[in-house]
Write a protein that binds this DNA or RNA. Structure first.
Length: 772
DNA sequence: ACTCAGTCGTCAT
DNA sequence: ACGACTGAGT
């Protein structure tokens, strides 16, 4: 479920785009989402327990699409349920059971269509199904990983560490976890919408300018999230106002209780904290370290043992086996793969259901031997490695020699497998799992006896797979099925409308802007604004101040600068979004490398880079001001991610410059606007003072930046809202036009309607062209 | 204004 | 089921 209403709330920063534009990059994908979609296609078979694997075909089709566009998919599968979600999952499992029963009855009654619709609700994607897909992924050399717990946290970790450049998902929770680049509403043709964290400051519905990840997260949790039900009648907007006004969750709750209204459970604050910690520190698997780590390292003062809700630790060897897809992350039983997953699987599937697993394939140990030799750990591979297509999408190329390639795996367990302690461990059903949390020795996990898993876990579906003993079945949540929606799909035409919407809103937004202003003013935010102003100014030169008008209106320090920045980076490469990131992202994300990179950039580019620097400063400032050191710090430190983008970008550019032709400096239109807004000193009411400040700030940033624990995620600069708002609103129409140079060039049709069109409009055009 | 509950269209076969 | 969208309710 994510955060209901969050995506619509961010609608103003939805950038229509297409997969093609991300050629050369690696995107993390929610594997269960794809599997679920594919499973819908064979809901009846799955419900009947027939051995179908259409869901694999469906997912592989998408994998091929990504490769076709030059984008490397990195599939991430969900692992075990967090203790906090066990209940939810149990109820879902129950519902699925019910739907399945009903669906089968309808089927028997000769009402296929109704049965189908009912059975769709009964779809349960199992680890075994994931395993089938994984077999194909291995063949196609597609990177993947099974998270110890939630894929969302795993995806964000991978993005932060640079294993992936962005995430493809429909889940708004990713933004709460701290995702920087999210592609949603991906359709079959690769059309999608990009939501970039950096654009947050441009959100029209509410002013997130200057908001840190912490505040954003608090807002999301208050409105209700997967880990905690929301309060009374508090939705996102209300939560936004509350946070803006009272700053801390504690004060918000105090206020809520103070004036009756919503009643807040006694335990609410504790639960709130737990939810927050879950978003922050959930366990994930690091492909590089090949071990379990926390999404964000907590401060030393925090005791991980006091946070059972983030999931129990997982022993290294077990974690590796789970990550490779060899062990069911829930039951922790080894998943046996029959044999060639190829297309012929059907036949085999049928037969073997009962048969002894061994007959199907080699002993597991065999597999291990092979693989260990040939496989390279994902973490160590270069993202580009995958770029090459598997060529055989057919996937099933060598069926005869089905040896599954597995990721680097230690084979310890295999040998070590003793008798499994099956009895004790297994009994977790949904609820039980909580108990299981304690890590068990690996040896136990590996049960020797093969049992088939007819479906237990999710009996619903499943093709039969042999698994080592598995007494109990736990059911897994239907992971979000989201992945591809069709919204924009229709092709150009349909897309156009959206876009138009987007823009129109922008243009028309004026009224909105007013609103925004009011909001801003109302709060104490003003103070912040003042402080932040300077920074902002320095930060953004990026946009060239094109419009004469604008210029008059706003003073740009370095008007033209913006572009050059891109040059510095590398124009060619930047074409896509990367460059944007590069410029802006600077912040903390990348750990080691980043800092260096940052410094360099600054020196070299100077002001243009400034944009970067400033951010850092801003962040710092921000953190100080805002205070609540604790959380903030936490975030800041850990976030490494962005660096990747930068790094990758450069190389890429080199490699294939031509590809994107040119998008010179490419900030997203939104970003440009935002930047510009920031930059401008606002004469208006508040900020006369701002101007001066700005100057000051510039210098500071650098040094501070490094030392500070910046909060990476939110790069948005804090800024004066008013200006920003205005800029955003007003300009949209005109501004975009302004941007023109870069856009026009980059984007497809300069001449064409494009000129008049906003950036968004252009995009659409592009899309059309491409597709057509 | 905002939240929330209900409807619709999607998805695939 | 899922989100998007609508309309009712405060």
């Amino acid at each position: 479920m994510g955060i209901s209403g969050l995506l619509p709330l961010l609608k103003s920063i939805h950038r229509p785009t297409e997969l093609k534009k991300y050629a050369g990059e690696t995107f993390g994908i929610d594997g269960y989402g794809w599997l679920h979609r594919g499973a819908v296609a064979c809901a009846i078979e799955l419900a009947q327990g027939k051995p179908t694997r259409k869901y694999v075909d469906f997912a592989m089709h998408r994998v091929r699409m990504f490769k076709y566009f030059g984008v490397t998919p990195y599939l991430v599968f969900d692992g075990d349920f967090l203790p906090s979600k066990a209940k939810t999952e149990a109820s879902r499992a129950k519902r699925r059971e019910e739907s399945k029963r009903l669906g089968l009855e309808l089927l028997r009654a000769g009402k296929p269509s109704q049965a189908y619709s009912e059975l769709q609700k009964a779809i349960d994607v199992t680890p075994e199904m994931a395993r089938h897909l994984i077999e194909e992924l291995k063949k196609a050399d597609v990177p993947y990983v099974v998270a110890p717990y939630e894929a969302d946290a795993q995806l964000v970790y991978l993005e932060r560490q640079g294993f992936i450049n962005g995430i493809v998902s429909e889940d708004s929770d990713l933004l709460v976890f701290g995702a920087k680049r999210l592609l949603t509403k991906m359709d079959q043709h690769g059309q999608c919408v990009e939501i970039n964290r950096r654009d947050f400051c441009a959100v029209r519905e509410i002013s997130l300018t200057g908001w840190t990840d912490n505040e954003f997260r608090h807002m999301a949790i208050f409105s209700g999230c997967d880990y905690l039900e929301g309060v009374n009648n508090i939705g996102l907007k209300t939560a936004y106002r509350l946070i803006r006004k009272h700053k801390t969750p504690e004060r918000v709750v105090r206020m809520l209780r103070f004036d009756g209204k919503h009643q807040v459970p006694e335990t609410y604050l504790d639960e709130f904290r737990q939810a927050e910690l879950t978003f922050l520190h959930q366990r994930v698997f690091c492909p590089k370290q090949r071990d379990i780590v926390l999404l964000t390292e907590p401060e030393p003062s925090v005791n991980v043992d006091d946070m059972p809700f983030i999931g129990a630790p997982v022993e290294t060897e077990l974690a590796r086996a789970i990550a490779a897809g060899d062990v069911n992350p829930i039951t922790r039983e080894r998943i046996l793969v029959p044999r060639s997953p190829g297309k012929r699987r059907i036949s085999q599937a049928l037969a073997p259901a009962t048969g002894p697993p061994r007959s199907l394939g080699k002993p597991i140990s065999e597999y291990f031997k092979d693989r260990s030799a040939r496989r390279i750990p994902l973490g160590e591979m270069d993202a580009n490695c995958f770029a090459v297509d598997s060529d055989q999408n057919g996937s099933a190329t060598s069926e005869d020699a089905p040896r599954p390639i597995v990721f680097p795996l230690p084979r310890p367990y295999v040998e070590g497998a003793e008798e499994a302690s099956a009895s004790p461990a297994r009994p977790y059903t949904s609820n039980a799992r909580v108990l299981r949390r304690k890590t068990e020795p690996v040896s136990k996990l590996l049960g020797l006896d093969f049992v088939e898993s007819p479906g237990h876990r999710r009996r619903t579906a499943g093709p039969v797979i042999q698994v080592y003993q598995d007494p109990t079945s736990s059911s897994r949540p239907p992971k979000k099925a989201r992945l591809c929606e069709e919204s924009a799909v229709e092709g150009v035409t349909s897309a156009t409308p959206e876009k138009s919407k987007f823009f129109s809103s922008g243009k028309q937004k004026r009224p909105a802007k007013k609103k925004a202003d009011q909001l801003l003013m109302s709060d104490d935010s003003i103070e912040d604004v003042f402080r932040s102003l300077p920074d902002l100014a320095s930060c953004r030169p990026e946009k060239p101040s094109k419009r004469t008008d604008e210029i008059t209106i706003f003073q740009d320090l370095s008007p033209e600068k913006p572009r050059r920045r891109s040059v510095v980076v590398n124009p060619a490469t930047e074409s896509r979004s990367d460059r944007d990131e590069d410029v802006v992202e600077v912040p903390a994300s990348s750990p080691s490398t980043n800092q260096h990179g940052l410094n360099e950039q600054r020196t070299s580019s100077d002001r243009s880079p400034t944009s970067v620097t400033p951010l850092g400063e801003l962040l710092k400032t921000f953190s100080y001001e805002t205070a609540r050191p604790r959380t903030r710090i936490v975030h800041g430190l850990p976030t490494p991610a962005s660096s990747v983008a930068q790094q990758t970008a450069t190389p890429k550019s080199v490699v294939k410059p031509a590809n994107n032709t040119a998008q010179p400096a490419m900030l997203t239109p939104l970003q440009r606007i935002g930047a510009r807004a920031l930059r401008r000193p606002k004469p208006k009411s508040t900020t006369t003072s701002s101007m001066p400040t700005m100057a000051l700030t510039r210098n500071k940033p650098q040094r501070t930046f490094e030392s500070l624990p910046v909060n990476p995620a939110f790069v948005p600069l804090p800024r004066v809202d008013i200006d920003e708002v205005e800029a955003l609103n007003r300009p949209l129409g005109s501004e975009d036009q302004l941007v023109p140079e870069s856009d026009g060039e980059n984007e497809v049709l300069p001449g064409d309607g494009g000129a008049a069109v906003y950036s968004g409009g252009r995009r659409l055009d592009l899309a059309q062209v491409l597709y057509s």
